[in-house]
Amino acid sequence: MPRQLTVLPAPEAPADVLGSALPAVRAALEGSAPLAVLPAGPAATAAREVLAPEEPLEDGADLVVVTSGSTGGGRGVLLPAAALRASATATLDRLGGPGTWLLALPVSAIAGLQVLVRSALAGTLPAVLAPGEGLAAAAARMPGGRRYTALVPTQLRRYLDREPEVLRTFDAVLVGGAATDPALLARARAEGVAAVTTYGMSETAGGCVYDGVPLDGVRVRVDDDGIAIAGPVLALGYRRDPGGTAAAFTGGEFRTRDAGTIGADGRLTVTGRLDDVVVTGGVNVAPQAVEGALREHPDVADAVVFGRPDDEWGQRVVAAVVPAPGAAPELAALRAWVSGRLGGPSAPRELHLLDAVPTLHTGKPDRRGVAATVTR
C-alpha cells in the first residue's frame, strides 16, 4: 500500500519542537511515519506544492526536506532513515560521542532536522533557542556533559560579537549552510571557540565533510563538473522529479554543482557554486571569495556578491553590502580593497547598500533574491 507523507507546520516555540517535531522525527527514523516539516512564513505555500502530500510517497523515503531554492527552485529531497542514521552516527563519532544539542536552526532545514536526529539517536533532549532569546539563556537549560550546537556563519558572527563566552562552552560548534569566511573562522578559534566547518546539503543528509575531511564512509572526488559525493548518507532522489533525480544522482554519486579542490593532505576546499561563478573579462570570479574579502573591510558588516550582464566585460561583479555602524562604504574604496586581496577582476564595479542581507529559510544568504531586487 502506498505510504502517505505527514506534513508538519513549522514549529517555533520550544514546546512545539519538543512536543511535536522531535516525536515525529523519531517516528520517521523508525520508518513508521514519513515526515516533512514546512518552513515558516510565505515559503510554506511553495514548499507544500513541492511536497504534494496528497500524492503517494516514493518507496524508501522516510523524511522529505524542501531545499531553499538557492540553485533556481526548491526541491523535495527524499531521505531514507538509513541515510539520516549514517550521517548522525558518523557525526557523533567524529565529534567525540553523544551529547546534548542546542537547536538554533529551523527544523524545516536539514541542519536543524539533524540536530533532532542526533538527539533522538543519543537518547537526549535538545535545548531549543526560542525566537528572540539570547544564546546564554538557552545554553543555561543544557545539562552537563558534552554540548554541541550548529549555526550558520551569520549566527556565528553575531554570537562572537555578543556572547563569545557562551560559544566557548560548547565542545563543538558546527558551522555550515553557507561558506564560512576564513577570517571569521580564524577569529572564532582565536577566541577559544571549537568551531568545525561542515560541507554538505539536504541530498547528503546534511554536513558530510568536516573541516575538509569526509565523515567515515563518505567518499568525495572533484572533476571539471564539480564535487561528487558517495556513501551511505545519500538521498534517494527528488520528490516527483525522476528527470532531476537521474541527472543529479548517477553512478552511485551525487553531483553537487559545487566547485572545489582536494589538497595534497586530502582535504576538500569548496570554492563556490559552478552556477554562481561570474565571468568578467574572461576571468572566473567566485562570489563567495569576494564576499569574504568585503566582510573584512572595516566599513562592511555583511555582503552579497553576484554578476550582471555588462556590454564591455561580459559580466560585472556587483556588491550589495550592509554598512558597519556609522560607516558609509564607497565603491572606489571597496574596489581597491578587493583588488589588493583577490586581483582586479574580482573588484566590484557596482555597489548597493542594504539594511540587512535577506536569507532563505535554511539560513543561507538569498543571493538571487538580492540580485532580483536591487536596481542600478
Rank of each mutant, 00 (worst) to 15 (best):
G282E: 04
Q315A: 15
V64W: 00
A327Y: 00
E30N: 14
V7G: 09
V128L: 08
T71I: 09
V152T: 06
Q4E: 08
A328W: 10
L84D: 04
V338Q: 12
V321D: 02
G112N: 12
A13D: 12
M142S: 12
V25W: 02
A82Q: 09
G41K: 00
V152L: 08
T280M: 07
P214F: 03
P182G: 03
D258R: 08
G31Y: 02
V166L: 08
P348K: 02
A43K: 13
L184V: 07
I110Q: 07
L8D: 03
R26T: 05
A44Q: 10
A264G: 13
T100S: 04
V17C: 03
L121F: 07
A109R: 05
A52G: 04
A24D: 09
Q114W: 07
A259M: 14
A83P: 05
A320M: 00
A122R: 10
G281S: 04
T375Q: 14
R335T: 03
T124R: 14
A104W: 00
M201R: 05
G326H: 00
F306P: 15
R75K: 15
G326S: 00
L342F: 15
R158F: 15
G132K: 00
R189V: 05
G266R: 14
S20E: 12
E54N: 01
R267V: 05
G343N: 09
R267C: 13
G266C: 08
A15D: 07
F306L: 10
D161V: 05
T198C: 11
A24C: 07
A178F: 02
E330N: 09
V66E: 00
S70F: 12
R341S: 15
A183G: 11
E55C: 14
E54M: 02
A356R: 14
Y148Q: 05
A15L: 01
R376V: 10
A188G: 06
V300N: 05
G206W: 04
P11V: 02
V277P: 11
I110R: 07
P39K: 10
P348A: 03
V222P: 02
A235P: 11
